[in-house]
Amino acid sequence: MQDLQTPPSAEARQWAMLCHFAAFFGLVFPFGNLLGPLVVWQIKRDLDPFVDAQGKEAVNFQISVTLAGLACVPLMLILIGFPLLALVTVGALVLTIIAGIKANEGQAYRYPFCWRPIL
């Protein structure tokens, strides 16, 4: 476990940021928002405890976003799903950018409204 007094190295901060920003693979590949952070976290989690913690947080958030998006699909039949999906998308975009910036600053970020199945 990393000492709480010692800030993470520049390399650890960069990989933690990439764990969050890898979610933008979802703009290119189906479920890339989930697979991108998962792959980066799995490859670099042993580098530093900070990378491990932020990688878990990024994957957990993307699991939550994916489930929320899938829940919006049947709600589209009664039209409420369209604005809900837009809200989920914009919220995920904004929170992912904030998380990446905070991780690059060396601050551990915890997403709000996040189910955390991976501890």
Score class of each variant (00 low, 15 high):
98 I>F: 08
101 I>R: 11
107 Q>W: 04
117 P>V: 12
81 G>E: 05
25 F>G: 08
93 L>D: 02
26 G>V: 01
88 V>L: 08
41 W>V: 03
96 T>P: 06
12 A>E: 11
34 L>M: 03
46 D>Q: 14
96 T>I: 09
103 A>H: 05
115 W>T: 07
53 A>Q: 13
118 I>D: 09
50 F>E: 04
118 I>E: 07
37 P>Q: 12
66 T>V: 15
46 D>Y: 05
8 P>S: 07
103 A>T: 08
47 L>S: 10
29 F>P: 00
44 K>W: 08
78 I>R: 12
1 M>I: 07
13 R>L: 00
61 F>C: 04
113 F>D: 09
47 L>W: 10
71 A>P: 01
111 Y>V: 04
56 K>V: 05
99 A>V: 11
114 C>M: 06
68 A>L: 15
55 G>P: 11
68 A>G: 07
50 F>W: 02
27 L>F: 11
71 A>S: 14
94 V>E: 04
98 I>V: 14
85 L>H: 00
70 L>Y: 10
18 L>Q: 03
93 L>F: 13
48 D>N: 09
112 P>V: 01
45 R>D: 01
94 V>F: 09
91 G>Y: 09
35 L>F: 13
104 N>M: 13
53 A>F: 02
32 G>W: 06
105 E>D: 12
44 K>P: 11
58 A>I: 13
62 Q>A: 02
41 W>K: 11
16 A>I: 07
101 I>G: 02
84 L>V: 09
79 L>W: 13
20 H>C: 10
89 T>A: 15
94 V>P: 06
79 L>G: 08
40 V>P: 00
117 P>A: 12
33 N>M: 02
62 Q>M: 11
31 F>R: 02
13 R>Q: 12
43 I>W: 06
60 N>E: 11
75 L>W: 02
28 V>S: 02
47 L>I: 14
20 H>M: 06
39 V>H: 09
7 P>S: 09
88 V>W: 01
102 K>G: 02
97 I>H: 01
8 P>H: 00
36 G>L: 03
111 Y>G: 07
24 F>H: 05
8 P>L: 07
21 F>W: 12
46 D>F: 07
28 V>C: 08
84 L>W: 05
34 L>T: 03
84 L>C: 08
74 P>Y: 01
5 Q>K: 14
90 V>A: 11
116 R>C: 11
72 C>M: 04
29 F>K: 02
13 R>K: 15
30 P>V: 09
45 R>Y: 02
1 M>Q: 08
52 D>K: 14
69 G>H: 10
66 T>I: 07
58 A>G: 10
